[in-house]
Design a binder for these strands. Sequence first.
DNA 1: TTGTATGCGTTATCAG
DNA 2: CTGATAACGCATACAA
Lengths: 340, 340
Amino acid sequence: MKPVDLKQIARELGLSVTTVSKALNDYPDVSKKTKLRVKNLAIKLNYTPNSFALGLRKQESKTIGVIIPDNVHYFFSRVIKGILEVAEKSNYLVILMQSNEDYELEKKQVDLLIGKGVAGILISLSNKTHDFGHLNKIIDSNIPLILFDKIAKNVNCSKVIIDDRKAAYDAVSYLIKKGYKRIAHFRGDLNPQNSIDRFLGYKKALLDNNIEFDSSLVYLCNNNSDFEDGYNNAKKLLSDHKNNVDAVFTVNDLLAIGAIKYFNDNKIKMPESIAIFGFSNWFMSSVISPSLSTVEQHGFEMGKQSGTLLLHEIYCKHNRVKVEHQRIVIQTELVIRDSC
Amino acid sequence: MKPVDLKQIARELGLSVTTVSKALNDYPDVSKKTKLRVKNLAIKLNYTPNSFALGLRKQESKTIGVIIPDNVHYFFSRVIKGILEVAEKSNYLVILMQSNEDYELEKKQVDLLIGKGVAGILISLSNKTHDFGHLNKIIDSNIPLILFDKIAKNVNCSKVIIDDRKAAYDAVSYLIKKGYKRIAHFRGDLNPQNSIDRFLGYKKALLDNNIEFDSSLVYLCNNNSDFEDGYNNAKKLLSDHKNNVDAVFTVNDLLAIGAIKYFNDNKIKMPESIAIFGFSNWFMSSVISPSLSTVEQHGFEMGKQSGTLLLHEIYCKHNRVKVEHQRIVIQTELVIRDSC
DNA sequence: TTGTATGCGTTATCAG
DNA sequence: CTGATAACGCATACAA
C-alpha cells in the first residue's frame, strides 16, 4: 500500500499539484469550493504529507532529540514522561538516547541528532562530560538547545534545574532542627554540579547552625552502583564513627536505600539509632521500611517545562523572534516520612 | 553554520556532485585517487549526508519507532534500554512513545510513525487495545512490525514474549512445594493476554497438585494504581478469609509490594503468617523487607532481542529476502528471596 | 483563481 | 573514469 501523495489527489480531482498543496495549506488564493473538494478527498484517502519532502524543503522536522544519562533511573523516566506528554500535544516526535554516563557516546549522539535535522535538543549531561564543544556545535548549527538537571553553567542556552544547594540545605536544616548533630553525608561523584551543590548545601546548613564541619563524615560514592555504595558506606560509617554519628544525608535515594538495607540487616533502628534523609523521592522510598524522608524533585514537571520551553524556542526561531535564554528553577519540597 | 553538502565538496575539489556522491558510496567506477581526495575532505569538513534527502530518495530513514504503555514501569524502562543499545550499535535512532494504556492514543501514534517513514516499529500493546486495524495498517504499509510482551496473537508479525503461563505455573508450584495450600491470586485486568495467562498458570498449578481452585481467592486488580490495589486487596483478603489463606501470588511486583506494606503495617509476619510471590523482579523487590520472591522477566534481554529481530527484518526487506516471522520466548526464572 | 517552473540534497541512469 | 540529467514529494515565486 503506497502512501498517497499530492500528485494522486491532484490527478483524481483534475487539478495541479500546486493547487492541491495550496488548498491543504489554506492559502488565500484558492477558492472555497476547491479547498473543500481537496480537503475532503485528502481526509478520505488519509493523506499524510511526506515528512522527508517536508524536511528537505523546510530543513527541519517536527522531531526533537533527548539525551539522558539513564532511562532506568526513576527520576529520568519521569522526566521523559513529561517531555513525551508535551511533545505529543504539539505533534512532535521524540528521539530518545541514553549516554550511559559516557562522554564519547554523548558526543556521538549529539552528532547524530544534528545530522538528523531535529528541531531542537534536550540534554541532561553525563557525569563525565567536562568539555562542551559538542553543545556549542548545536548552538552554532542554530538548533535550540536546553539543558536540564545535569547542566553546564557556561553553555549559552536555556536551563531547567532545581536548586540543589537550597534543597540540600533545607534537608540538612530539617535534620538539625530535629536535634541531630553528627550528620554524615554520602556525596556523589566529584564532577557533576548536582553533587557539588548538594554537598555545599549540606556544609552550609551545618555552618549556619554552628555545627562544625567534619570531613571524615563525608563519604564519596562513585562506584556506579548506588545501592551497593550505600550499603557499604553505611557499614564503613558505623565502623569509623561507632556511637558518634546520628544521621546521614545522602545525595540520592538509592544510596539511602542501600544504607537502610544495611541498618535493617544489622538491626540498627531508624531513626532512633540513626536517621536518614534521601534525595529524589523515588517511588520505592515511600514503600520501604522505614519509609524514607527525601526531597521531591518533580521530574515529571521538569520534563513538561523543559519540553514546553524547547517548543517555545523552536517556535521563536520559526517566526524569527529573538529568544531570551531562560533559567527555570523547579521548586523542590521536603517529603518527611519515618526515617528521621 | 550551515551543514556541508555534496555541492560544497564538489566545488572545493573541482568535481561534479555525482562523482563526489559515488566516491563516498564506494562506487567501483571512481578512481582511487579521487575517492581518497573526496573522502579526506568529507572527513575534514565533517560531512554528514542530509537525512531528509536520503529519506526522500530511499523512502526510509534509519529510525525505528517504539510504543510502550508506560516508560515509568521498571520493566519497560529496562526494555527500552535494551532497544536503545542495539539500535545505537547499528546507528539507528529510536522514536519513543507512550500510549499511557490508551487505545486511541496508540492508534494515533502508529499513524504518526507510519507518516514519519520509520524503518520499523516495536509495540507493546496497551491493555485497552482490542482491535488491531492499526497494526495491520503497519503491515500493509510494508513496515516491519514486532510485538513484544503485550502482544496480540492474531496479528501476522514476529513476537517476543515470555511464557507467562509457565512462569506463573512455576511460581505457584514452588509455593505449593513449600507447603502452602490456600494460595490467593491478585490478578491483573481482564483483557491483556499476560494477566490471563498468568491466571491460567496459577490455576493449572493448583489443579496439577490436587488443590481445589477457589474463585473467592482471586482478586481483580484494575484500578490503575497497582500499589494501592495491592494494599487494599491484602486488607480485603484477610477480612474475607481470616485464617484460611497462607500465600498470595500477585500478577506483578507492585501489587506484591502494596500487600507487603499492608502486612507490615499490621504486623503480619511474612512468610510465617502469609507468603508472597510477585512477578517481574523490579529493582525495589530486592531491597524491600522482607525481600520479595518473584519472577525475573529479563526486560533488558527482551529489549535487545526485539531490537535485533526488528533490525534483522528491516535488513531482509532491504535485500528482498523473505522473512519468516518468529516467535521468540525469553526464558524466565524464579528469584527466591525471603517472602516465601 | 489556477497553473508552471524551480529547488531542497541525494542517488540512479545513462551518455560521454 | 567522469559528469549531465532526472527523480523522490513538497512548497513557493511568478506567470497566466
